[in-house]
């Protein structure tokens, strides 16, 4: 009797948790990018192309679309992450941003957050960081040159 009751209560609560949680914590929901976020990304993302974007960045959606295409074409396993650096929206309808693996938004002092990524980054967007699973990072203002992307893809396998 007790065992059946226990199983019933447990399974009911577990089912409820499974139903409720995904609607609250979607993988696509933008996450806050704080002062310690960059170091966490570098050390835990594996191979990842991080695109820092902004409200007025007309080059950014095309770059993210190019990366999505490159990953598909070359069957690469890298993640594509998008970070909004100002107050702009990341949910832009059919924007390629919605197809990124994760998206983030700056919370706090923009200059301080930029500095954590790279002190020499002056706010240009798109600003791209290619992270390799070994922890190395290459930065580019604008699109990374094709040969750099290929080399990174080879080296980071």
């Amino acid at each position: 009797m007790g065992c059946k009751l226990k199983k019933l209560i447990s399974s009911t609560l577990f089912t409820a948790l499974m139903i409720v949680t995904p609607s609250l914590v979607s993988a696509k929901e933008p996450l806050p990018f704080e002062l310690d976020s960059w170091q966490k990304l570098v050390h835990s993302s594996g191979n990842a192309a991080v695109v820092f974007t902004s409200t007025h960045c007309v080059h950014c959606p095309g770059l993210v679309a190019d990366l999505l295409g490159d990953r598909k074409q070359r069957r690469q396993g890298y993640k594509i992450l998008v970070v909004m650096t100002d107050g702009g929206a990341l949910d832009l309808g059919k924007s390629p941003y919605n197809k990124a693996d994760s998206s983030y938004f700056f919370i706090g002092n923009t200059q301080a957050l930029r500095y954590t990524v790279n002190p020499s980054w002056r706010g240009v967007t798109p600003y791209v960081a290619l992270i390799s699973s070994a922890g190395g990072v290459q930065f580019y203002s604008g699109s990374p040159p094709r040969d750099s992307l290929l080399r990174w893809g080879r080296d980071s396998r």
Binding site: L13, L17, L24, V25, E29, P30, P32, G87, I107
Partner: peptide, 25 residues
């Protein structure tokens, strides 16, 4: 199970608050 629920809901609520803060920075 309730503790797990509370943790998940709590972190979700925090992220939601921060998204709101981002939109209203």
């Amino acid at each position: 199970i309730f503790a797990l629920c509370a943790t998940v809901l709590g972190s979700s609520a925090r992220a939601q608050d921060e998204r709101e803060a981002h939109r209203h920075r």
